[in-house]
C-alpha cells in the first residue's frame, strides 16, 4: 500500500468539504473561502496522484497546470471579493438572499 495515496484522498476530502460549505453557508465570504478550499483540494489531487510512482522522476506537467490554476483562482477570488463588497454596500449584508424578500 502506497502511503502517498493519502494526499489525493485529502484533496478529495477538501473538495467535498468545500462543496458542502459552498451550498450551506449563506455568507458570501464563506462561500468564497469554500470555493478556494475546493480549488486547493483539486490542485492537491492533480499534483499528488502523479506522485504515486516512487522511483521515476516527477511529472512536471501537473505542476505547471497548478500554477495556471492558482493564477486563475487568485483572479476569480479578487473579482468575487469586489462583487461581495459592492453587494454588502448596496444591500447592507454580504448574502445572496432572494430578491423577493427585499
Amino acid at each position: 500500500m502506497n502511503t502517498l495515496i493519502v494526499y489525493p484522498l485529502v484533496g478529495i476530502g477538501l473538495f467535498c468539504i468545500g462543496l458542502y460549505a459552498l451550498i450551506m453557508q449563506p455568507h458570501l465570504l464563506r462561500k468564497l473561502l469554500a470555493v478556494n478550499i475546493m480549488g486547493s483540494g483539486v490542485f492537491l489531487v492533480l499534483v499528488s496522484l502523479g506522485m504515486s510512482n516512487t522511483n521515476a522522476q516527477q511529472d512536471p506537467v501537473p505542476h505547471a497546470m497548478i500554477i495556471t490554476g492558482i493564477v486563475v483562482a487568485i483572479s476569480a477570488t479578487a473579482l468575487a471579493l469586489v462583487f461581495m463588497i459592492k453587494i454588502a454596500l448596496k444591500t447592507g449584508k454580504a448574502e445572496l438572499s432572494n430578491p423577493e424578500e427585499k
Binding site: 468539504i17 496522484l49 510512482n53 506537467v61
Partner: peptide, 23 residues
C-alpha cells in the same frame, strides 16, 4: 457530499499504482 467523497475515494484507490504521466 459524503456519497461523492466515497465515490471519488473508490475511484482514486482503483487507479493503477503506476500511472502514466508525461514525465
Amino acid at each position: 457530499t459524503l456519497l461523492l467523497f466515497a465515490g471519488l475515494t473508490y475511484t482514486v484507490l482503483s487507479l493503477p499504482k503506476q500511472t502514466k504521466g508525461l514525465g
